[in-house]
Design a protein around this nucleic acid. Structure first.
Length: 413
DNA sequence: TTAAAAATAT
DNA sequence: AATATTTTTA
């Protein structure tokens, strides 16, 4: 701020050289200070960096005040940077990993190419040329905005924090209104579960996708390829199956329902899209959507890597699969203990990631499910699941009832 | 530019 | 119905 300090007001001094040096020093200090402000945000992560910069500033100021020959602090002379832990300027160059050009929130230059906004570091070979610090303030703000980008988790509106620990260190910018702009807004209280779940989806698939401003709510905001408001036209396109459906977003609630259905059907591998859809009772949900989601779910569910078996990595949260459904061990234990009703809420954790599993113990499952399990027995065993050397637990025949096979994996889904 | 999610095709 | 591929979005 107040970027320009008018140093050298009286440069009448013919020793222009001196003034020049002073000026450059001052500029450098300014740059350093600005840099420091930036780093300040990452105080936790880059304490040493902060310290370095601070020291550098002090050093420079001393030099400036003492008026001694500051002459050569050639910043990027990479020459001496090797040995010196001296904490002087040059080091700064290392720390500028910042990439911006992430989303600029509000100002959209539509259709503008994202010009590469190069962040101008303080450093410079030709400091003269780019000493346009015009950007001083604006630059700062931009940068600050970008700060929260790094973990900007697009977490959906999601019901407020569950009591669970929110361990994340991140700075969320939730508070502000601007935050989530999930196109869909579902989040009707499902907990209340009026039985009717308003689906985020537009009315029906068959109808022309176009005019969807669906009355009640939501419809996929992202106007699809058709472009949202295509008032336009292009009827000649065969209406039957024209545009792609607008992308539907599976809200946590929706997913929760999905999981619920899944569990009632006996697991992801035995459930069938149609059944799932019917069980979910979500209005407007199509088979294809469920199918797609199921596919993704299975995909994520698959054993991540055979390699890590004996390696119980303590830091990786482990999940246990029960009847084809993932659940965190503690919950599983608890549930197993109580044999209680399956209403352990699951679905999405606070991160908005799927933390699967409301599950119910094997005891009660749909008879049809078990039937299907039998039908599908071959398939289940044809895939890679036992193929790897691991401790092939499951080759032994298992009755349908005790289908609990356990495995550990990453919590990806 | 990549990766993930959803839609669509086979 | 399951899986593969393509398209869209972050």
């Amino acid at each position: 701020m107040n970027g320009m300090i008018n140093y050298h007001n009286n440069n009448h001094h013919d020793s222009s050289n001196y003034d020049e040096k002073m000026q450059r020093t001052q500029e450098y200090i300014d740059s350093l200070e600005e840099e420091r402000r930036k780093i300040l945000v990452f105080q936790r992560e880059l304490p040493l960096c902060l310290e370095l910069v601070t020291q550098a500033i002090e050093t420079c100021k001393q030099q400036l005040s003492s008026g001694t020959t500051v002459t050569e602090y050639n910043f990027h002379g990479q020459s001496e940077c090797s040995e010196q832990t001296s904490t002087d300027g040059p080091v700064l160059e290392e720390f500028i990993p910042i990439k911006r050009a992430l989303s600029s929130d509000d100002d959209e230059q539509q259709s503008r190419k994202p010009k590469k906004s190069n962040i101008s570091n303080g450093n410079d070979t030709d400091n003269k040329s780019n000493n346009n610090d015009k950007a001083a303030s604006s630059k700062k703000s931009d940068w600050l905005r970008s700060v929260q980008l790094w973990n900007q988790t697009p977490d959906p509106p999601q019901k407020e924090d569950s009591p669970k620990k929110v361990s994340v260190v991140e700075v969320k910018r939730n508070g502000s209104s601007g935050g989530a702009f999930h196109p869909f807004k579902k989040e009707k209280s499902i907990g209340a579960n009026a039985g009717k779940l308003d689906v985020p989806k537009s009315g029906d698939k068959t109808s022309i996708p176009a005019a969807e401003a669906s009355s009640t709510e939501e419809t996929g905001g992202t106007s699809g390829g058709g472009g949202g408001g295509n008032g336009g036209s292009k009827k000649e396109e065969k209406e039957g199956q024209s545009q792609r459906k607008s992308r539907r977003c599976w809200s946590p609630e929706l997913h929760k329902r999905f999981l619920l259905a899944l569990q009632q059907l006996g697991g992801a591998h035995v459930a069938t899209p149609k059944q799932i859809r019917e069980l979910m009772k979500v209005d407007g949900l199509t088979n294809d959507e469920v199918k797609s989601h199921l596919q993704k779910y299975r995909l994520h569910n698959r054993r991540p890597s055979p390699s890590i078996h004996s390696n119980n990595n303590p830091q990786a949260p482990q999940f246990v699969v029960v009847g084809g459904i993932w659940m965190p061990p503690p919950e599983y234990a608890a549930m197993a203990a109580t044999t209680g009703s399956g209403e352990a809420s699951g679905g999405a954790n606070s991160n908005g990631i799927y933390a699967p599993i409301p599950t119910l113990p094997p005891p009660f499952q749909d008879p049809s499910a078990s039937l299907k399990q039998k039908q599908r027995y071959k398939q289940l065993h044809s895939d890679d699941r036992g193929s790897n050397s691991g401790g092939g637990v499951h080759s032994n025949s298992h009755s349908t009832s005790s289908s609990t096979d356990t495995a550990t994996t990453s919590p990806n889904y």
